[in-house]
Design a protein around this nucleic acid. Structure first.
Lengths: 228, 228
DNA sequence: TAGATTGTTAATCGATTAACAATC
DNA sequence: TAGATTGTTAATCGATTAACAATC
């Protein structure tokens, strides 16, 4: 199944999107779909869809297309959603609490089992059914629970230290929310959520589309009126 | 400056990363850097760095390299960070509040000037110095303020409606946090933050690296001990 | 069977890397 | 000047698209 040569990251990053579209189709009670129909919905070529899927196996049938439910399940399995991954959140600030309350992760098979912080006033607070623990308890916690992924939502300055600590304890997946590239001497997978990078790209694209050539001329002052 | 042919999105998405590394160099009081040195730090080729930068202009000097401060400023300008972009947040849940409190955006030139929600109990609450307004006030607000970007952190179901509303009011940039692709009949730029997509890719990479071949065998139960 | 659509190979396109003359 | 390093062209590599035989 996952044999042949390594699938490129470009393909892998498209898988969740396929997964979402298939979930939508299921919700609409559509049971079969051709690469052509799907390509129209997703705005990519049918050729790419077939190429992508065939990295993992022949899920379709000539003359028929793909069975939506089968394909949905297969892609879920490829993504490892059936692995019952467990997560912890380190950093119970706004972002950490947002993640703790996000229902979508659990729906996709990622179960949060711990939240950690250092601020005394937040220790013990219950967030989405889980009591915030002190980071000093992390060591002991990891000894008694399988933890696959640590979500790092701590302040910028301490992120490298916390990441190192988590990796040292044997946690293999780090989901990093700080605007930096983590470099660790451990065999871990790091996936970044660089929010400000994303926002800056949005800024670039706005500039390119709507202010071509008119860069730098501050417009902040010219609100059409001002609160008043 | 921004002439010639369109710069590819692949290049654009690398710009914030260059910007971060240059900020770090500045902080370390490093005033000049060669593409070779920078390539070693960033883990990409020197050739790529020079190609990328030369999409926008010749910022370097033969035999010398690049002046860190100049390059930092230039990339900032290219990203439009000097445009004094204004933002609003629609959806004052956990994620919205996280964004409202995130200092990094303002540091990069994105100023939040409004927060909106529908829940009566949160209207009027002050978050990072800004009072939450009712979404019904959005229309009037946009008439009196320049709003470049709307950050959409509303529940999944209402995201398309809210996005449509924002676009209709003339907001040109949408930062979408819902796990869906927005399709709007307006000329807007949409930048997505698909958190669950990112998490699923992390799941895939964990599976690939550490469980090759052993997919699907649930390991959730085998915590080494269990809280006890 | 005829029509539809896959899986897969070949062709194209774009992005990355290498090479090197120009020049500080 | 000699050494270093850019800007840029050419070569390579990888990813996307097109084409089509296989087959349901």
């Amino acid at each position: 199944m996952n044999d042949k040569k390594k699938v490129s990251l470009a393909v892998v990053r498209r898988l969740p999107r396929y997964y979402r579209y298939l979930a939508d189709l299921l919700k609409m009670d559509i049971t079969r779909i051709s690469s052509k129909e799907l390509s129209a919905r997703m705005g990519i070529t049918a050729s790419q869809i077939r190429q992508d899927l065939n990295c993992f196996g022949g899920f379709g049938q000539q003359g028929y297309g793909y069975n939506v439910e089968v394909l949905f399940r297969e892609i879920g399995a490829i993504l490892g959603l059936t692995n019952n991954y467990t997560t912890i959140i380190i950093g119970a600030g706004h972002m950490g609490q947002a993640l703790a309350n996000y229902k979508n992760f659990e729906k996709r098979g990622f179960k949060n089992i711990g939240i950690f912080d250092v601020k005394e006033e937040i220790i013990g607070k219950e967030i989405n059914g889980i009591k915030v623990m002190h980071i000093d308890e992390l060591d002991e916690f990891v000894k008694h629970h399988k933890v696959d992924i640590a979500m790092l939502t701590v302040p910028y300055e301490v992120t490298p230290i916390v990441a190192e600590k988590a990796a040292k304890l044997g946690i293999k997946g780090l989901w990093n929310f700080s605007p930096m590239d983590l470099k660790l001497p451990y065999d871990v997978i790091i996936e970044n959520v660089h929010l400000s990078d994303s926002l800056m790209v949005l800024g670039y694209r706005l500039n390119e589309r709507f202010c071509k050539g008119g860069r730098g001329e501050a417009k902040s002052g010219d609100a059409k009126d001002g609160e008043k």
